[in-house]
Design a protein around this nucleic acid. Structure first.
Lengths: 218, 218
DNA sequence: AAATATATTTAGATAAGACTAAAAATGTAT
DNA sequence: ATACATTTTTAGTCTTATCTAAATATATTT
């Protein structure tokens, strides 16, 4: 149906779309895929012709419904295989990504249905990420606002409540991104601002910011 | 390490080598792979440079030891995946080939070892074909063609010579599967067709059928 | 608003793998 | 041994996906 390369681009755009209200930029895709911007442009044209993305020169891309469905299917396959590798073959959670990157391109709908059944219809992969169902909908996960954590608690950033570009730019500037681990170090009583640790860096953020950041608690 | 295409050529040459004492001809490979002779020539040059085949213009090819080892590894992966599909995912034996053709190219030695363990180190695939071990050696099994049995003799079905889906479907339809006990009741002198007993059922099968069914004699 | 910087696209090249058509080698028959 | 047929190789083209370098559009700064 689609080449491995096309599928990888769709997946990348899908993931990037969640963090940018606007279209996804060529450079962002290039960085994500470890390719050059010119290669991305070529592929975007191809995907646009196949009606998988909405592409306007110099304006970035968004996925069409068809593109989203296709991307969700690949992510579904990837995450189901990850469950298989960990649950059945006894891999540890940090070893499975590369192998699942290959397995996700195996083409057979029946295979995926049977695998899903074999694994007893899991809803989340070994990293806690949701496994989309056949129709492309993602199950909800228990996520907490950063502002609801207590001092000493930590979690992994899994999303934002406010998706305004100014907010996202602020996050970018401070190295906060999806998948980043955030720990609450201390809290100011006066204005409820938080001292947090992202990676090795320490920041102070306002309550407003903290109440717009979703974490997966661990 | 090697591209999917290179691996497929090695596999094809490996299988063809068993039937020809001489080198395998370009045309034979082309037919097996459903490509054109000119494409084969291109690939043979590439494989020769990588020391996987001994290639002399106009003389056909043979696999080097390295080539044999590589081919055996791919066949090992293919057959282990077939066992997985049938034993764990509940596929029937005529549905697994195409999927295994894709899975055999997944690259990860650890994966295959873990899969092997998960399947409890099987020695034969669902069609009764031997699964080469890590070092490339094939396990032997004393098996006889059903057509070589005499009247009154019986055996357990352990494999098929023809693995075409039409043949496998025929077998399914008549309740013949791996592990089934088959007994020769009588034989027609005119066309060598056999009257056999499978379980409690009686059938008549042609000589062609009988000469494509392997039994383990007992 | 002009100048500069950054992002994106175009143009042209490369590599893998396949193809067609033509040329060359090998095999077979008279 | 010559002529014909078949097999194999070569030469040149195509597609996919990538790249570099140059051109163009957009964004930012002064």
């Amino acid at each position: 149906m689609f080449s491995d390369s096309e599928e990888n681009y769709l997946k990348a755009i899908f993931h990037l779309e969640r963090f940018s209200k606007e279209g996804v930029s060529t450079n962002a895709i290039a960085e994500q895929m470890h390719t050059k911007a010119s290669s991305v442009t070529d592929m975007l044209k191809k995907l646009a012709e196949k009606k998988l993305v909405n592409y306007v020169k110099y304006q970035g891309v968004t996925l069409t419904n068809e593109g989203k469905k296709t991307a969700a299917k690949i992510i579904r396959k990837h995450r189901l295989w990850e469950v298989f590798l960990v649950e059945k073959l006894d891999f540890s959670w940090d070893e499975v990504h590369e192998i699942a990157e290959q397995l996700e391109h195996i083409e057979s709908d029946v295979l995926i249905e049977k695998l899903d059944r074999h694994l007893d219809f899991p809803k989340f992969d070994p990293h806690g990420d949701p496994i989309p169902s056949n129709d492309g909908t993602f199950p909800e996960r228990d996520k907490v606002l950063l502002s609801d954590l207590s001092i000493g608690e930590s979690g992994v950033c899994v999303g934002v409540k406010d998706t305004s570009s100014s907010f996202l730019k602020f996050l970018d500037k401070n190295g906060i991104a999806l998948g980043k681990k955030i720990k609450v170090i201390d809290q100011e009583e006066f204005d409820n601002s938080l001292h947090i640790q992202v990676g090795k860096e320490l920041f102070t953020i306002s309550h407003i910011i903290a109440s717009n950041l979703y974490l997966k608690s661990n």
